[in-house]
Design a protein around this nucleic acid. Structure first.
Lengths: 207, 207
DNA sequence: GTCTATACTGTGATAGAC
DNA sequence: GTCTATCACAGTATAGAC
């Protein structure tokens, strides 16, 4: 028999994950298990029952965040858009959009960066990055355009990490430019033609 | 009189900072003061003498890393380059160059990301980011080009954080492209002309 | 002034009560 | 299945050797 259960185990798990996110966001990874458990309305022992250790809790939280980002990119996919670079454009939108949810999402980057302390999380992030790399490369975009656009999207979303003032108008503007870059390849080939001839790998790479 | 000094205080400080960097890189912020002190060849108390607390040590380490990056950008400045975007190009080189020192530099990003847990470090990073923003905006580059180039450089250097496989050849290629973008504005204005008309702030901003 | 030795406080983890 | 009691250990503070 349960000692006392006003909620289901899965509900408790979710409460604990949310509480962990909030506490670590504000107090850093040094946030206490006591704090997290209390905020979720359970005891420290109760927390440890659901997550074997603090590392395990953090790993689960990181997993949750990465999945949330994937969902956001999927939601940003335009069903009417079937041109090459479809996924890249959704990726850019998810990284740069300034809506209510997207703001929370982009701020999660700072949270995830803190979690990466734990080796298991680092491995999780590595695998996730590799998967994005694979999926984006299958998106049909010229290699150079893809590298530029994705780097810029990453850089802009990572800016919150370093405390850079993120002006919504600037982000929307960059977003439009990046999306335009994925659509207007002629422009890009012009850049390549005029570029420094001693660039390594200067030929090939275009589809 | 010093109880025992096979080295000067400033040497001890440097040893401690380097030890802290190494240990935190490998074991995360949870690296013990004992570990760090031992690696530097002093006792835990000795560490606490030089740095009042672990937070203080970490703040000093972050300060050191930010300064090292500034030095790297300065070193990447081409004296012969006097065209607008001079600083942006040096910034790109420092972020993307794949030499011996630069590699260490780019890996320091992951370290700094871990330190940002401490509020004092977050504030330090915020101020530093703001300063870069100011200096780069005074660099004479069109606003749009600057935003794109800097975002991309940031994104590429932050990739190591997320475990993305950083291929040297790809980085050098992106570097050349970004530098080319800062030099070839005509190309960019073409992109702006063809871009979506509903982009906010679509007029003005060019110098 | 610089450091070592050591004692104190609070956190993460465990065993076992209910 | 949930929580209490307890332990081991990390960060901090202090006394004192040199």
């Amino acid at each position: 028999m349960s000692r006392k259960a006003g909620r289901s185990p899965s509900e408790t798990r979710r409460l604990l994950l949310d509480a962990a996110g909030t506490m670590i966001r504000t107090r850093g990874v040094s946030a206490t298990l006591d704090d997290i458990a209390q905020r979720a309305g359970v005891s420290k022992g109760g927390l440890i029952y659901h997550f074997a250790s603090k590392d395990d809790l953090i790993r689960a939280l990181a997993d949750d965040l990465l999945q949330t980002f994937r969902d956001a990119v999927e939601a940003a996919c335009d069903p009417a858009d079937t041109a090459p670079g479809r996924l890249a454009r959704a990726y850019v939108r998810a990284c740069l959009d300034t809506g209510q949810d997207e703001r929370v999402l982009r701020e999660s980057i700072a949270l995830l960066a803190q979690l990466i302390t734990i080796p298991a999380v680092a491995e999780l992030a590595r695998a996730d990055a590799e998967r994005w790399d694979r999926e984006l490369q299958a998106d049909g975009l010229p290699e150079d355009v893809l590298a530029l656009v994705v780097s810029a999207a990453d850089g802009a979303s990572n800016a919150s990490l370093w405390g850079g003032a993120t002006v919504a108008a600037k982000l929307r503007r960059l977003e439009q430019q990046l999306i335009q870059l994925t659509l207007d390849h002629t422009l890009w080939s012009h850049l390549r033609l005029t570029s420094n001839p001693d660039v390594p790998g200067g030929s090939g790479g275009f589809d």
